[in-house]
């Protein structure tokens, strides 16, 4: 790793308290050798200009706070290496959601869609004294589904979600829907499918696969959506 170096940024700035309109700010910062990720650089930048606003928490890719649009592609700042990133580093808020300030977006619509699929286990049998049994193979069906961190990189890279954020559940919500459909302990399969049987909620996915391309956890919402569509077809025949 090289020692001290200066990097150039172009950052979307907007403070509704003082700015009439958003603008792109050109700014540079000198990094220390220990600044390996984009988030490290942003923290360094904030020490220089404390008005730069962004969400961040775990800095290891598991809390989902620091999603933003990085050189045109959605990703997490904490998992983006400073070694292989083109300059000037252009940072914008996640596309398609209202901007609150700088790269902080209003995620209300995103969570509304997540909540709409009833993201909790439904099993109306009386709870047994011990754990419900599940075979390792059945448990493996949840791999690639439960790891979602709700960062919204996927849904905000999806043209169908941009056009119909109020009607199309979006990749993150649909991944969660399939996570419960795939769980052998869940008993609400037909209720869950009914909930998605609609021209928009599920079927606005046109397999563009931007979601797969940007997911920082390497999950595959398109595949999960395909499986839900299969379940719809199977129950129709």
């Amino acid at each position: 790793m090289s020692s001290k170096r200066t990097v150039q940024f172009k950052i979307y700035r907007y403070d509704p308290d003082k700015d009439a309109a958003p603008y792109m700010q050109d700014i540079s910062v000198e990094l220390e050798e220990s600044d390996k990720k984009l988030l490290d650089a942003l923290v360094r930048l904030k020490a220089k200009d404390d008005s730069l606003s962004f969400r961040r928490s775990c800095r290891e890719g598991v809390c989902g706070s620091d999603a933003m649009n990085i050189n045109g592609k959605n990703g997490l700042a904490c998992l983006t290496s400073m070694d292989d990133i083109a300059q000037p580093i252009t940072l914008r808020p996640l596309p398609g959601l209202p901007v609150i300030r700088d790269v902080i977006v209003d995620m209300t619509q995103f969570f509304k869609q997540y909540h709409s699929i009833k993201p909790y286990l439904i099993n109306n049998e009386p709870a047994p004294e011990r754990e419900r049994l599940q075979s390792p193979e059945d448990r493996d069906e949840l791999n690639g589904l439960y790891e979602c961190i709700l960062c919204a990189c996927c849904s905000t890279s999806c043209p169908s979600f941009w056009w119909n954020p109020d009607k199309f559940v979006g990749p993150a919500g649909l991944l969660a829907a399939y996570r419960f459909l795939a769980d052998t302990r869940d008993q609400a399969t037909s209720e869950r499918l009914d909930n998605l049987e609609d021209p928009y909620r599920l079927f606005r996915c046109h397999s563009i696969m931007n979601c797969v391309d940007v997911c920082p956890k390497h999950l595959n919402p398109t595949k999960a959506i395909g499986k839900i569509k299969d379940m719809m077809v199977r129950r129709a025949v």
Binding site: E131, R139, R185
Partner: peptide
């Protein structure tokens, strides 16, 4: 577990 937490499982499902 009853709330839906995806614990890993033993061969006998526990």
């Amino acid at each position: 577990e009853h709330y839906g937490m995806p614990f890993d499982r033993t061969d006998n499902g526990k």
